[in-house]
C-alpha cells in the first residue's frame, strides 16, 4: 500500500514538473515567434524621432497614426491602389481557379471519356516539373499577348493549378456513388450533379483550397514582380519591396506598409484559425 502511494506521488510530481517544463518551453517559444509581429506593429505607431531610440518602448506612450497617413497618401507609393489590386486579383484567381479545378476534378473522378486516365496521368507528371522552368516562356507569352502590367498576366497562368485538380479528385472519389443515384433517377444532368451534390458534399476540401489559393495569390512575390512594372499596377508584396528599397531610413513608414499588407491575412487567420489549421492537416497545403 505504502509503496503504491509513494509511486503515485512521485509520478504525479514528476508529471507536474514535466508539465511545467513543457509550458515554460512553449511559452518562451510563443513569445519569440509572436514578438516580431507585435514589434512591427509597435514600430508602425512610434513617432519617427523615437524609432531608433533604445530601450524599446513595448507600449509606446505617444502612439501616432502619422505613418499610416503618410504611407497611404504618398503619390509615389499608391498604396490604396496596390491594396485594391491585391484584393481584386486574389479574389478573381480564387473564384475562377476553384471553379476550373473542381469541374475538372469532377470529370476525372466521375465521367467516362476516351483517354481519361492517360490525360490524368500526364497531368500528374506535370507536378514533378519544377515551376521555375516555365517562368521565362510564360513571361514571353504574356508579353506577346500584351498582358504585361495587366491583371490578365496574374490571373490566367494561375488557372493551370494541377494540385487543386489532384486534391479535389481524390476527395470526390471518396464520396459514395449512392449519393448521386437518387438525382440520376430524377433525371439530373452531369452539371447539376456536380453543382448540387458533389460540391456541397466536399465543403471541407473546397474551403481549404479556397483559403490557401487566396493566401497564395495574396502573398505571391516573384511572378507579380516580373510581370508588373507600372507603379499603379503593383500588388502589395511587390509594392512593399519597392517601399523597403526606396525609403530605407524610414523604418516606421515601411512597417506601416507591412502592417497594411498583412493585417487582412492575419485578421482572416485569427477568425478562421480552426478551419485553416484543420485545412492544412487535411490537404497538406498552406506552407512551404
Amino acid at each position: 500500500m505504502a509503496a503504491t502511494k509513494t509511486f503515485s506521488t512521485s509520478y504525479r510530481q514528476r508529471n507536474l514538473l514535466s508539465r511545467l517544463g513543457l509550458h515554460t518551453f512553449l511559452m518562451i517559444l510563443a513569445v519569440l515567434v509572436g514578438f516580431p509581429i507585435y514589434w512591427s506593429f509597435i514600430v508602425s505607431v512610434t513617432p519617427n524621432e523615437q524609432v531608433f531610440r533604445w530601450p524599446l518602448q513595448l507600449f509606446p506612450d505617444a502612439p501616432t497614426l502619422e505613418h499610416y497617413r503618410e504611407v497611404l497618401t504618398r503619390q509615389d507609393l499608391q498604396l490604396p491602389r496596390w491594396f485594391l489590386n491585391s484584393v481584386v486579383v486574389s479574389t478573381i484567381i480564387t473564384v475562377l481557379s476553384l471553379f476550373v479545378s473542381s469541374i475538372t476534378a469532377y470529370a476525372f473522378s466521375r465521367l467516362e471519356f476516351p483517354g481519361r486516365d492517360f490525360l490524368f496521368v500526364s497531368i500528374l507528371f506535370a507536378l514533378m516539373v519544377p515551376g521555375e522552368v516555365t517562368l521565362i516562356p510564360v513571361f514571353l507569352l504574356v508579353r506577346n499577348l500584351n498582358w504585361l502590367d495587366t491583371y490578365h498576366a496574374l490571373i490566367w497562368p494561375a488557372m493551370a493549378s494541377v494540385f487543386g485538380v489532384f486534391l479535389l479528385r481524390q476527395f470526390f472519389l471518396s464520396i459514395p456513388k449512392e449519393m448521386e443515384e437518387a438525382a440520376v433517377i430524377d433525371g439530373a444532368g452531369r452539371f447539376r450533379i456536380y453543382w448540387q451534390i458533389i460540391l456541397p458534399l466536399s465543403r471541407s476540401a473546397l474551403v481549404a483550397l479556397t483559403i490557401f489559393t487566396f493566401l497564395g495569390a495574396w502573398n505571391d512575390l516573384f511572378w507579380p514582380l516580373i510581370v508588373l512594372n507600372r507603379l499603379e499596377m503593383r500588388t502589395l508584396p511587390v509594392g512593399l519591396t519597392v517601399l523597403n528599397g526606396t525609403y530605407t531610413q524610414e523604418r516606421a513608414l515601411i512597417m506601416a506598409g507591412a502592417v497594411i499588407a498583412s493585417a487582412p491575412v492575419l485578421l482572416f487567420y485569427a477568425i478562421f484559425q480552426r478551419r485553416i489549421i484543420e485545412g492544412v492537416m487535411l490537404t497538406g497545403m498552406g506552407g512551404r
Partner: peptide, 13 residues
Amino acid sequence: FIFYAPVVLSVAV
C-alpha cells in the same frame, strides 16, 4: 495558433 501565424505572411512582409 501562434506558431502557425507567421506562415500566413508574405515573404515580402
